[in-house]
Amino acid sequence: MNIIDPGFILGHYNYWVAIILIMIGLYTMIAKRNLIKKFIGLNIIETAIFLFYISLGDVTGGIAPIFAEGSTNPPDAVILYANPLPSAMMLTAIVVTLCMTALALSFAVLIYRRYKTLDARRLMELL
């Protein structure tokens, strides 16, 4: 599999988007001086990870993996299901990220109340 093959690149475009988003997020975390912007960079990384995981679970032509009793599908039919595990993992990871965002924003509010600035360089000199 040639990595510069256009078909390979286009066929995996969601993974490329995830990688580009992670790079944008890392750049934002490193280069921006505002504490909230730094955290937005982290949120971009987390969103890219969600995209990456959900791409992992997708199967071309797969349907939602629900198997109900009395289902109309005949039991021996070949049905493609999407992998539910990455989506389930990401539901948990979204909750974790939400907790972290809430905590970071509350820290930022308290820091701003005390120092009247969110500039990381000036704040880290005070530490």
Binding site: F39, L42, I45, A104, F107, L110, R114, Y115, L126, L127
Partner: peptide, 19 residues
Amino acid sequence: GRGLLAGYKYLLIGSAGSA
């Protein structure tokens, strides 16, 4: 103030590690 700043620094580095 300092506790919050130390906490925020820890949070940024730690969350990057978790990612």
